[in-house]
């Protein structure tokens, strides 16, 4: 009879267990069956009058039931507690999050950084130098004597003492070569100045100069290095072309164009219907420049290039007014986060 009662109790216990919904339910259930006066406890107590064998058999059965129930209740309780925390209606999460002020580097700094990284990968070392220069470093040593019409290409700011604001980063070629022995591979980013001011010209802007001197670095190598730079900067699919040009300090000289990023070469207002955008000037170092720094032109040859940081930044980000870089409107700066 007790065994029947046990069977009945088992059925009842599991039926009721399934009905447990919340913590108070669970507590009632625990008291009802496992408490000091609970049904399982009661039955366990009532076993004392039975035979030893029955006591052992039924006692085992009841103890197993109790243990199983206790385990399951623990799991159940955890489940309920987990669900409990989801009961909240939820906050108005359409409100904006708290904002943090995020700083940003100037777009020109960012682009200079990118270019330095690109050329560093090719083993170019970064050097810097003075922005106030002498005629000698800025012009004469670069094969631009004072009578040379090429001086018209660069409208120069002079200082009252006869020095000048460098019109390009090319003086760094001379400074580096005078300081060091070949071979060398340098880039020199920095500010340069020309008396020119409109939507496309700023009296102060930035350039990056490159110079490589070695025993047999060639025109073909120059093309290779510049093509790598263009693809790294404007994307792997960028097409480039090289045009002959003239700079007094390189021979042969070239200019590199990239396919217009706006119209992809079809011709648009940005590229003046040409389909190409001029990116930089370069060439093989002119023997007169090597003579100025006492490099033996029989042994050494090299290439140099110079590019405008503003121009590259403008092309990259579709900026049509160079003055924006130096007005520093916060929203302009912050768009480069």
């Amino acid at each position: 009879m007790i065994s029947e009662e046990i069977e009945k109790l088992k059925k009842e216990v599991w039926e009721n267990f399934e009905k447990i919904q919340d913590l108070s339910h669970l507590e009632n259930f625990r008291v009802k069956y496992l408490g000091k006066k609970g049904k399982i406890t009661f039955l366990l107590k009532s076993l004392k009058d039975l035979s030893l064998e029955e006591k052992r058999r039924l006692g085992k059965e009841l103890n197993e039931l109790r243990d199983q129930l206790e385990r399951k209740l623990k799991i159940k309780e955890r489940e309920i507690l987990f669900k409990e925390e989801d009961k909240d209606l939820g906050l108005d999460l359409t409100l904006p999050g708290r904002s943090f002020s995020v700083g940003t580097l100037h777009p020109l700094s960012q682009v200079i950084g990118e270019l330095c990284d690109i050329f560093s990968r090719l083993g170019f070392e970064i050097v810097t130098g003075p922005e106030i220069e002498t005629e000698y470093y800025n012009f004469t040593a670069l094969n631009i004597p004072d009578w040379h019409p090429a001086r018209d290409m660069q409208a120069t700011f002079y200082l009252k003492n006869g020095a000048l604001l460098r019109t390009h980063t090319s003086p760094m070629q001379i400074r580096t070569m005078l300081e060091r022995k070949p071979p060398l591979r340098i880039i020199a980013p920095g500010k340069v100045y020309r008396c020119d001011a409109d939507v496309r010209h700023s009296p102060m802007f930035h350039q990056l100069e490159g110079l490589m001197v070695d025993k047999d670095v060639s025109f073909a190598d120059l093309k290779g290095v510049l093509t790598y730079f263009a693809k790294e900067t404007f994307g792997k699919k960028t097409r480039v072309r090289f045009r002959p040009s003239y700079f007094p300090f390189t021979e042969p000289s070239l200019e590199m164009d990239i396919e217009c990023v706006i119209c992809k070469g079809k011709g648009c207002r940005v590229c003046g219907e040409a389909g190409w955008l001029e990116i930089l000037g370069a060439g093989m170092v002119h023997p007169e420049v090597f003579n100025a720094v006492n490099y033996d032109t029989e042994t050494w040859q090299g290439f140099a290039f110079g590019l405008g940081i503003e121009r590259i930044t403008m092309i990259k980000y579709g900026i049509d007014d160079i003055r924006m870089f130096f007005e520093n409107h916060l929203s302009f700066l912050q768009s480069f986060k």
């Binding site: 102060m204 870089f325 130096f326 916060l330």
Partner: peptide, 8 residues
């Protein structure tokens, strides 16, 4: 935010 202003 970084700014760049004219040297003159």
């Amino acid at each position: 935010s970084e700014v760049i202003t004219y040297s003159f």
